[in-house]
Write a protein that binds this DNA or RNA. Sequence first.
DNA 1: TGTACATCAGTGAACGCGCGTTCACTGATGTAC
DNA 2: TGTACATCAGTGAACGCGCGTTCACTGATGTAC
Lengths: 192, 192
Amino acid sequence: MRVTRQKVAENRERVVAMAAKLFAEHGFEGVGVDAIMDGVGLTHGGFYKQFRSKQHLAADALAQGLAASAEQMKKHKTLAKYVQSYLSPRHRDNPGEGCLIAALATDVARQSDEVRDELTAHLPGAIERLAKLTGGDDPADAHQKAVLALSGMVGALVLARAVNDKALSNAILAAARGGLSGGASLKTGAAP
Amino acid sequence: MRVTRQKVAENRERVVAMAAKLFAEHGFEGVGVDAIMDGVGLTHGGFYKQFRSKQHLAADALAQGLAASAEQMKKHKTLAKYVQSYLSPRHRDNPGEGCLIAALATDVARQSDEVRDELTAHLPGAIERLAKLTGGDDPADAHQKAVLALSGMVGALVLARAVNDKALSNAILAAARGGLSGGASLKTGAAP
DNA sequence: TGTACATCAGTGAACGCGCGTTCACTGATGTAC
DNA sequence: TGTACATCAGTGAACGCGCGTTCACTGATGTAC
């Protein structure tokens, strides 16, 4: 049964969005084509009318998810506020609605160049946006701080998700939040 | 053909070590039981004489790999030196010989409780060891710095591995190295 | 605007391969005497 | 110390399931007149 051109485009968008969500929750290898198609109420046979392969979908899903993450970042006025929401228990507990970088970080490294290219293209912009949020004067310094903030946020979220103990997980989030929100210095032996 | 008791124990160790290496390189789902057994010159049929399941091996391999990572950390006298080696291109390019936390970070979150327990048990000790390396006076402050350093190191290494562009990857490592070695402060608007 | 045909998104069954797991078998090791 | 038997780590084939991909088919949409 054929379908409106508009419906076709809609369906494709929905498949990509569902894939981004499910990949974020279970990893690239943890989700099958049938689960994604089921998720949007279609059958898996039609998948290959829309995508050349699962890998191509993965690239599209990563691109869409990263774009959504960028929008998310723009909602926050200061680095501290962004860090607070990024390192919140809510974000930790809902990878499907959260940052794709943290959700798929180690997975991406094992995917095809096509998939890795998407993250590679996205990162410089994300770092630049973070650098603006840090509000420093020296651009080089702001850039370094941005890389540090991004690394710390991704690393802390990933660790908080990997750990099996809620108290430890919360402690990691809290410590990283405190450190990245502007309170602490990383300089060794810093004292007032 | 039966085998010496000592040989049995040796073989088991070698299987676990090979598993840790291969898991670190390709992820838990990216390595089959046959590949692991092939790697140590055995056939895959005998696997279940040594391990109850692939998941049980994963837990053992993670435990052994994390212990090895702890030994690695002890070789370094200062945080700065540890950061330098952790965030080196050499470490980035050899996940099989490197830190299991960074290699399997997002994978662990999707594994069974048995596997996640291993990381959960390991992290507090790792943070404490890092806290001692920071050399601060205030224990609470040292703890926060340690969590921040661990998060930043893991996050930066993961990002550097995920990215498909060597220049960008090197830049991430360099910026994080600079920021975590004690040079920069994360305090917003820090100026001399 | 209405009609006739071509197109093609979606369906559901099937294929083929990989992988975790099982099993009957082997033959050297471990043990009991 | 030597002999006879039991044990069991390792072998290699096989099983069963899941998953990515293919394919013949359907019927509503798009198009040509």
